[in-house]
Write a protein that binds this DNA or RNA. Structure first.
Length: 417
RNA sequence: GUGGGCGUAGCUCAGUUGGCUAGAGCGCUAGGUUGUGGUCCUAGAGGUCGCGGGUUCGAGCCCCGUCGUCCACCCCA
């Protein structure tokens, strides 16, 4: 048994998954950068206070924070998400608005791991700060949908809701608390506990015994201010004119306290496990001000890499990229030929790998097969004496002889480039 | 944080009511094939049965603890 293994909730991402991860981020960048979102790389840890704004009633803050004191006596936390970091960066640098950024990278939450849930988990996301314009809400949602489409996902359901402005949300929470308190005996024990912390989250309960009480609960829509209601109507209109399918789910609450007005969630209907939410986001007007900046609206989303890839697996799309080794050099004359041929090919931009330690031809051919190379170059004693090389196409086994002098050109021709 | 399942070879797993030197498939290495991979055949390497304690003449198997992992709850991406 190994002496060390990864810590709970963390793991090594090995090939071919690692290439898939990298490709995932690249596809994301290719969707959002042309839309004006610039890359931001915030630090992985920050002053604990930055993240306390995520919400005092959320377990992310109360139980799951990876926080510690550093050698300078600072209270530090590994970031549990990146929206708060982006807002802190906005306050720190005061860029001109609209400020549109994207990010990708690991976050940390001290949770008990299970499927689709890790202590170190990757997200990609965008944030747009400045405009209060509902057209921006629609743009942000549309980009997420475009990204899913780019991956090849078809079974993604978009739910949207409005949580209203700060005062609306508080009034609604009070109304909910009153409603649920009046029906305590009908609620599950879990939901009664949730009610203590955050009445809105009771709406999220999937327990059947809670369904009736939840169905009879007051609606957020009836507690929206005129401004918030108008904003929400405009968002819906913009989504419709962009032909984006959505359902309004007035029980969609989202986990983080800072959400205001528009919230949304992406659910994969191809997943059957507990974690079908593959992404989500919303407006967080007020977060920048909370962090000491000017009153600045903002909206964004984050998509979980693991869960999105699980959804891709379920739909059979977005396979790992093919090998980048174009050519595998089999040299049974000692290995020096392989060294010079690989160097020449690599310098010419052709991916080339080879075997070591003077393995048999059979063994080297097996390695060539495993490498995923489309072509094998074979150098035996005959080739060495005649200054030639065999170019073998792995798919069909056809081969041809080439002059050693213009081997690179011959290989390129065989590869079709 | 709560509850349950599972920890045996690199991987996926068998292992009977506790009883000789712990098995299979895949993978790996080598050979069959004196110059050619993906099919086939043969052989080989590889395990202190997660770790610690206990019961027993004897434990991979039973008991306790612990760590890990998976699943569900909670929470969330």
């Amino acid at each position: 048994m190994p002496k060390f293994a990864t810590s709970p909730g963390t793991r090594d991402i090995l090939a071919p998954d690692s290439a898939r991860w990298r490709h995932f981020q690249q596809v994301f960048a290719d969707v959002v950068e042309p839309a004006g979102y610039a890359h931001i790389i915030p630090p992985m840890f920050e002053d604990l206070g930055v993240f306390l704004r995520v919400g005092e009633t959320t377990e992310i803050v109360t139980k799951e924070m990876y926080d510690f004191e550093d050698k300078g006596g600072r209270r530090i936390a590994l970031r549990p998400e990146q929206t708060a970091s982006v807002c802190r960066a906005f306050v720190e640098h005061r860029p001109v608005t609209p400020w549109k950024v994207w990010y990708g990278g690991p976050n940390f939450r001290y949770e008990k791991p299970q499927q689709g849930r890790y202590r170190q988990f990757d997200q990609v996301g965008i944030e747009a700060l400045g405009p209060d314009d509902p057209q921006l809400d629609a743009e942000v949602i549309a980009l997420a949908m475009q990204f899913y489409a780019q991956l090849g996902l078809r079974q993604v359901r978009l739910s949207i809701n409005s949580l209203g402005d700060s005062g609306d949300r508080d009034r609604y929470a009070t109304a909910l608390r009153a409603h649920f308190s009046a029906h305590l005996d009908a609620l599950s024990a879990e939901s009664r506990a949730t009610l203590e912390r955050n009445p809105l989250r009771v709406l999220d309960s999937k327990r059947s015994e809670d369904a009736a009480v939840i169905a009879a609960a007051p609606k957020m829509a009836d507690h929206l201010s005129a401004d918030a209601a108008t904003h929400f109507a405009h968002v819906q209109a913009a989504l419709r004119s962009a032909s984006i399918q959505f359902v309004v789910d007035d029980r969609l609450v989202r986990g983080l306290d800072y959400y205001r007005r528009t919230t949304f969630e992406f659910v994969s209907t191809a997943l059957s496990a507990a974690h079908t939410a593959i992404g989500g986001g919303g407006r967080y007007d007020g977060l920048v001000a909370d962090l000491g900046g000017p009153e600045t609206p903002g909206i964004g989303f984050a998509l979980g890499l693991d869960r999105t890839l699980l959804a891709c697996d379920a739909e059979g799309v977005f396979a790992a990229p093919a090998s980048r080794v174009d050519v595998f050099v089999v040299d049974v004359t000692g290995g020096a030929e392989a060294t010079s041929i690989c160097s020449a090919l690599r310098a010419a931009g052709v991916g080339a790998d080879r075997a070591y330690e003077g393995k048999s031809m059979k063994s080297q051919m097996k390695a060539a097969d495993r490498s995923g190379a489309r072509i094998a170059i074979i150098i035996g004693d005959d080739e060495r004496t005649t200054n030639t090389a065999i170019i073998r196409t792995m798919d069909d086994g056809s081969q041809q002889s080439a002059q050693r002098d213009n081997l690179v050109a011959s290989v390129r021709q065989a590869l079709g480039r």
